[in-house]
Computed example of a mutant assay.
Amino acid sequence: MSLSINPVEQLSSEVKEYRKAEYSINPLFINRWSPRAFSDRNISDADLLSILEAAHWAPSSFNDQPWRFIVAKTEDQLKIFHEFLNPFNRAWAEKAPVLILIASNKKRENGDINSAHAFDAGTAWGHLAIQATLLGLSTHAIGGFDKVKARSLLNVPEDMELHAVIALGYRGKKENLAEDLQARENPSSRKPLKDIIFEGKISL
């Protein structure tokens, strides 16, 4: 199922119980969270490309755009991705109709090391997640996968770092998850803002 509300207009009912911003922000940021329950409803190519286009427009150091997206959307492609997910993540992520491996080039075009490549790829992932939410889709970033196996199966060169596999799809029913995951299928809260902000210097 997809949320029936417009995420830029109001908070969804499911996040109101778990999330409250301390200061005024667009509801879009509160409505975005990372579920594990996905339906098998297909994603249109237009929506998928819109989501990747948003990621494509993320800022990057020297405009190097080091991010790379390896997309699995066919049955054969998804089977390969399932091979390198760890068992815990595969149990729920194999229901998602699209999986995207985010990687980034560690070198600039002139051969120099790009020390900002991971930071920039993370920014692109944020753009991707927000655009997906705008389209009524959900995302969940997965760090638990065999990078060595993924690199081999997907023919990823050594000068690219593998970061996360993104499960993308429409929300499913949490009752379809394993029992131990159903209780966790809720939006997460956040630490108080005062705990992560330091003025001038860090003081512990």
Rank of each mutant, 00 (worst) to 15 (best):
S2F: 10
L3G: 14
S4N: 12
N6C: 09
E9T: 11
Q10F: 10
Q10E: 15
L11I: 02
L11V: 03
S12Y: 05
S13K: 14
E14L: 07
V15N: 09
K16E: 14
Y18G: 00
A21K: 01
E22A: 10
Y23W: 06
S24L: 12
I25D: 06
N26K: 11
P27N: 06
P27M: 02
F29Q: 07
N31P: 03
R32H: 11
R32L: 11
R32M: 05
P35S: 03
R36I: 03
R36L: 00
A37I: 00
F38H: 01
F38M: 00
N42I: 08
N42L: 12
I43K: 04
I43W: 03
L48N: 04
L49H: 13
I51D: 04
E53D: 12
E53L: 01
H56G: 00
A58S: 14
P59D: 04
S61M: 00
F62S: 04
N63Q: 02
D64P: 00
R68L: 06
R68H: 12
K73E: 03
K79L: 08
I80T: 15
I80K: 14
H82S: 03
H82P: 05
E83D: 10
L85Y: 05
L85M: 09
N86P: 06
P87G: 07
P87F: 03
A91V: 02
W92S: 05
E94I: 07
E94V: 03
K95A: 10
K95P: 00
L99P: 09
L101S: 07
S104A: 12
N110A: 07
A118I: 14
F119N: 11
T123E: 10
A124V: 02
A124S: 15
W125A: 14
W125T: 12
W125Y: 11
I130Q: 08
A132V: 06
A132R: 07
A132P: 09
L134C: 11
L134T: 10
L135G: 01
L135E: 09
T139C: 15
D146N: 15
K149M: 13
R151I: 02
L154R: 04
N155F: 06
H163P: 11
I166S: 07
G172R: 06
G172T: 10
K173H: 14
K174D: 13
N176I: 03
A178E: 14
E179N: 13
L181W: 09
Q182N: 02
N186I: 15
S189W: 01
P192S: 04
D195S: 11
I196D: 08
I197P: 10
G200C: 02
G200F: 01
K201T: 14
K201C: 08
K201E: 12
S203K: 14
L204M: 06
